[in-house]
Design a protein around this nucleic acid. Structure first.
Lengths: 148, 148
DNA sequence: ATGAAAGTGAGATTGATTCTCACTTTGGGA
DNA sequence: TCCCAAAGTGAGAATCAATCTCACTTTCAT
């Protein structure tokens, strides 16, 4: 009785790491990869349903959760109380610069160096993890903004 | 008909920067300063009402908002989906190390240096702001944990 | 002393995210 | 190829931190 129809499944299940291949997840992963820069759950849902109508918001949230567990989707901040997400396949330890103009996300090498660790250690503290987000302008927006 | 009673107002309105002196705000500021380390809105509310019953949760949220605007209260992360807060009166630019053991918050010098800014600039990007939170063990908890 | 503005309490509301549940799809065996 | 237990899904309900509304109270410049 459901109006749910079978959608052809595609291959980029890679973003999930594990789990079954469902047409919905494939469509969601594809849409996530197609997003330009950072996005919010609701935006991803809109993007997916514009291509494959009928995919529920809960399914999108579940897919987001799965990709986050797999480490291929990360939270890069927040916007209006919503988690700001971005696909991230870079393997090494790094952080992200979110363009405040267009939402683009670019990887940035971790600025936490020996100096910081040692300064903390000097006070007796031990840094075990950290969370860093940079905001600014991506190269494209910077070039567009600056009138040399 | 209200059971609200007059509470003596204290002086530490300093955390608000501006605004009128109300007994409630004074009590909230006092409780916030008395908290050991980072806390959540609900915890601050409990702390305040344990001393001055009758103060509403909305009032606590309003006070939090006011202190954040004044820059004396900052968000240092989140815990179980709730904003993790901490009093911060240090004037210079810095960040915080939140002890994952006891919740203590200690100021840490900003690790974003010329190197990072230049690395971003090399790619054409411009970093305008950033957000950093360090997690680890404060000196006290580190000492307690390590059995030399 | 006064009154307009700021602040407050209680409860309703909002809105992102999660959960429930009955149903559908997947995929490793038999 | 068929089976079926487990995984996945859609719709809508439920959560719950945070905000808003509104009638009432307090503050403080005048």
């Amino acid at each position: 009785m459901s109006s749910r129809r079978t959608i052809r499944s595609t291959e980029p299940m890679a973003l999930y790491g594990r789990g079954r291949v469902s047409a919905q997840r494939a469509a969601i992963a594809k849409a996530a990869e197609a997003m330009s820069g950072a996005f919010v759950a609701e935006e991803l849902h809109r993007a997916v349903t514009s291509v494959e109508p009928g995919i529920g918001l809960a399914t999108v949230y579940r897919a987001i959760s799965a990709m986050q567990s797999a480490g291929t989707l990360v939270t890069v901040g927040e916007r209006d109380g919503c988690a700001l997400l971005a696909i991230c396949v870079r393997g090494d330890h790094h952080h992200h610069l979110v363009c405040t103009e267009c939402g683009a996300v670019v990887g940035i090498d971790c600025p936490i160096d020996e100096t910081t660790m040692r300064a903390a250690a000097r006070e007796g503290h031990l840094v075990t993890s950290h969370q860093i987000v940079l905001y600014g302008l991506c190269a494209r927006c910077r070039a567009r903004t600056e009138n040399t």
